[in-house]
Write a protein that binds this DNA or RNA. Structure first.
Lengths: 138, 138
DNA sequence: TATAAAGTCTATAAATATTATAGGGTAATT
DNA sequence: AATTACCCTATAATATTTATAGACTTTATA
């Protein structure tokens, strides 16, 4: 399951996407709209900024804004950023690979093979769907 | 990511699958083989038994054994049993549905639509692959 | 240039979920 | 009858997630 952090990130991105006409949007406005703790959301927006998805402006009249075209923000990117691996096992993660501690041999592991398939099916959707696809529906 | 509980369940099932020639297998043997805490494994095997996947025999000479044909044990079943929902959002879970608290309308939620796709792609693999597919590889 | 508005940063607390342990009880086999 | 091994409930330890606090920096504008 996606963490709240990731869900909040999607909410925030959706909100920012809907308000692209405005130069900036306040954290406060987003946190009110979705009932998210202001400070918690702050951290999330910062991460999105560091990842190059959002820009920000300090001071009065400041706030956050989308720096990328919604169609260039793959859902997989957001999930990996806030939640970490998409794969169901560390040994099949593309971005967060780790060997399974209790596993003797990946080559002989039947689960490994299947989970690679699952990962690829998931990524097939999550890499190709973007923020733009989410905005469309709303 | 799959929990240790689920991974242990797969290990145990694999072990039992490999030793179908024997009438029963001791918890102890499985826990030794994979370095799993005996008591923790006990709980997992019990759940698998309650789900009708394993059978057990008490007393001397007792132990656990596979009650089903490996090809009839879908991976999805094991994951749902030990880990809960496979879907990435509660609002798209087939077996553990819950509305998202912060979501105003599922019909208008763009994430919802995409996550249904992701779920279906995952299930396409996990429902159709079984314990037998894992055993094959080992 | 003072002030208020707004993001930045680091640390920590609270809550929750996961993993593991303990120990007694019960059933079945020899 | 004794041993063996499953069954069950409760609780402790650990890790992760979620949330909060507060001081600091930057910026607009009155």
């Amino acid at each position: 399951m996606l963490s709240k952090k990731t869900k909040y990130a999607f909410h925030a991105l959706t909100y920012l996407g809907k308000h692209r006409d405005k130069k900036t949007v306040l954290i406060h406005d987003i946190s009110e709209e979705y009932g998210i703790s202001h400070k918690f959301l702050e951290n999330i927006l910062l991460e999105l900024k560091k990842a190059g998805i959002l820009g920000s402006k300090k001071g009065k009249g400041g706030g956050y804004y989308l720096i990328k075209d919604p169609k260039d923000v793959a859902l997989s990117k957001v999930i990996r950023l806030l939640d970490g691996p998409i794969a169901l096992l560390p040994c099949v993660s593309l971005n967060y690979y780790e060997p399974c501690v209790e596993c003797k041999s990946e080559a002989l592991c039947g689960l490994n093979k299947v989970m690679i398939q699952v990962r690829d099916e998931m990524l097939n959707v999550l890499e190709n769907k973007s923020l733009a696809d989410i905005l469309d529906k709303e």
